[in-house]
Amino acid sequence: MNFIEALWAHEFLRVALAAGLLAALASGIIGTLVVVKRITFMAGGIAHTVLGGMGVAHWLGGSPLIGASVAAVLAALLVGWISRRGGEREDMLIGALWAVGMSVGIVAIAHTPGYSTDLMSYLLGNLLMVSHEQVTAMAWLVGLMLLAVFVFWRPLVATTFDEEFARLRGLPTLAIELGLLVTVALAVVMLVQAVGLVLVMALLTLPAATALLLSGSIGWVMLLAATIAAGEIVLGLGVAFETNTPAGAVIVLCSAVVYLLALTGQRMRRHRVPVA
């Protein structure tokens, strides 16, 4: 049975596809902002702190989703504060937060009696195991994110582009930047559930980087990045299904290949144009 036939036959594949497409939409919008604002490392720090929140929530017997959300928002505010202070050790502090968050998660999970979930599923994700409820929650979150980006479009783009000028024009840039980081954090929580930490990092960077090679207008870059991510996720799911390989890792490798192809194409085009 090939992937297309299997899609008709198996509901879990359709749910996985829906989750993948929602993840693509989130990665197109949030990933573009992360890449143009050069905050990939911050997003990585936040993403890995999420694991700490999940572990502690498990250990306390609470909902891992709430634990992850609380940890994500706290990490986003902490990272935002570190970055505003602008100390020379900014990258060190975020790297440390990254490692500490993850270690807290691993220690908490190790000490949780009867806790048996495979840690690998948080790292590489289990798109094929996503539930109906998770997809519904993802759809709500993506909808809210789209609405927020639409409503705040002008101040958001102006602040992301040139914070000092936006501040001089009277925009509350601190609130906008922290709001962006919190949105990134919540997107990460949503994506980690579905696709795992490794794929989150890939989705927040590679599709947007590819789209940036193709367009010079931020709105188009977002649309292109979402489309590219969607294509990569469908392709990756298909290849993973046909070859019985972990879906998350295949999607990451697909994204990397597409980015390299786009980069090569751009370089070749540039070389062909004669320098006048």
Partner: peptide, 24 residues
């Protein structure tokens, strides 16, 4: 005070000057 490679057109950049003239 911004990245030169930010995906923004000249027209959009100049329109940022209108921020703060009315509510955002």
């Amino acid at each position: 005070t911004f990245r030169r490679d930010f995906p923004l057109s000249v027209h959009e950049t100049v329109l940022h000057g209108r921020l703060g003239r009315s509510a955002w």
